[in-house]
């Protein structure tokens, strides 16, 4: 029988792939951070669904506590990531890494290796 746990477990597995695809193909650093968060919540969902696969429906409290810890740490890491992106943009004037500017369509961008304006 298909339960909520089955559906959201598979949904979590799909989200991990979706986030991974975004993380690899997006060059904007803030978009990569978004994709990274999608991977993270996919992992939480897969993990939580694994803990909920019972006929009784009561979810195992230990994974729940670990996931709560994970969500809080994910926010802290995202905030630090946003801080790093903003500091990088402030120094370089760009929101993508120079090596990404070289590999995307059309080859190297003329301004991708310019010196920081400061």
């Amino acid at each position: 029988m298909i339960t909520s746990a089955t559906i959201f477990g598979l949904c979590g597995a799909a989200l991990i792939g979706l986030g991974l695809y975004g993380f690899v193909t997006q060059v904007h650093l803030l978009r990569r951070l978004l994709a990274f968060n999608v991977i993270g919540s996919g992992i939480f969902l897969l993990f939580g669904a694994t803990a909920a696969r019972t006929p009784t429906g009561a979810t195992d409290p230990v994974p729940q506590a670990l996931i709560i810890t994970g969500i809080v740490v994910a926010l802290a890491a995202t905030a630090l990531g946003v801080g790093l992106v903003l500091a990088y943009v402030r120094i370089s004037g760009k929101a993508c890494l120079p090596e990404d500017a070289d590999t995307i369509d059309g080859g190297p961008h003329p301004s991708s290796h310019e010196d920081p304006p400061e």
């Binding site: 193909t25 997006q26 060059v27 904007h28 004037g93 993508c96 995307i104 369509d105 301004s111």
Partner: peptide, 10 residues
């Protein structure tokens, strides 16, 4: 720099 950031890999 917006065009640069919106471009995608091949």
């Amino acid at each position: 720099n917006t065009s640069d950031e919106m471009r995608r890999p091949p």
